[in-house]
Design a protein around this nucleic acid. Structure first.
Lengths: 104, 104
DNA sequence: ACGTTACTTGGTTAAACTACCAAGTAACAA
DNA sequence: TTGTTACTTGGTAGTTTAACCAAGTAACGT
């Protein structure tokens, strides 16, 4: 069913649709990071960060690897970054429109 | 604030994170469509479709244009389509992994 | 074995989302 | 002006999310 595919795609996109998760993805663009580092970056409770990561993991956006006490996460499909270029394009367009509207 | 930018990006991404909205975006890739056509495609109540469109409109993903009785929507920043190539890549990776896991 | 660090999972509560129906508005037609 | 079509908006109920605290697990050090 076509409908099912769209549902799956929505799940993947939804897994990115949160400020903290976007911050983490951006951070992971540099390379793998442990949960503790990501926590520093987003500045939320460790349990909250862990849950965000598990959402992204089950969506297939990130994978993890345990090393000693730490768990390192990394991007599974790097193209998610190009994805953001487009989001930024939308953002720019929004900003420009607002500016135009302000000028009248 | 950086945090604010991530919030704005999340709003844009969230506006796409729904099966019906993805269907509409795909449909709009062909060109502008009226709300009634989009309703046919997603098969939901007209009010539901209208609300989905208004979410995407305020996120800056689509714009509209009224002509007579009809309101035509179109993609505002076409790159959202390339966006999907990546989502599909994630989906493929997920499927492959599942297949691998099944083989053991 | 015991404590510590690094995570994950369960539980709770508040907020956000989504769907439908019903009611309202806008443009056209008779 | 009355009716019809094409939408939008308000209201409500059910579902999903997200945040924190608390408790549990896993690996390591002593």
């Amino acid at each position: 069913m076509d409908r099912e595919i769209y549902k799956q795609k929505a799940t993947i996109i939804k897994a990115m649709a949160h400020p903290s998760r976007l911050m983490m993805i951006d951070a992971l663009a540099e390379g793998e990071k442990c949960v503790c580092e990501l926590q520093q970056i987003v500045g939320a409770d460790l349990s909250t960060v862990s849950k965000h990561l598990s959402v992204m993991k089950s969506a297939g956006i990130v994978t993890d690897r345990k090393e000693g006490l730490k768990v390192f996460y990394r991007l599974r499909v790097p193209c998610v970054l190009r994805f953001f270029e487009c989001v930024e394009a939308v953002l720019r367009a929004n900003t420009e429109e607002t500016a135009r509207a302000m000028r009248g």
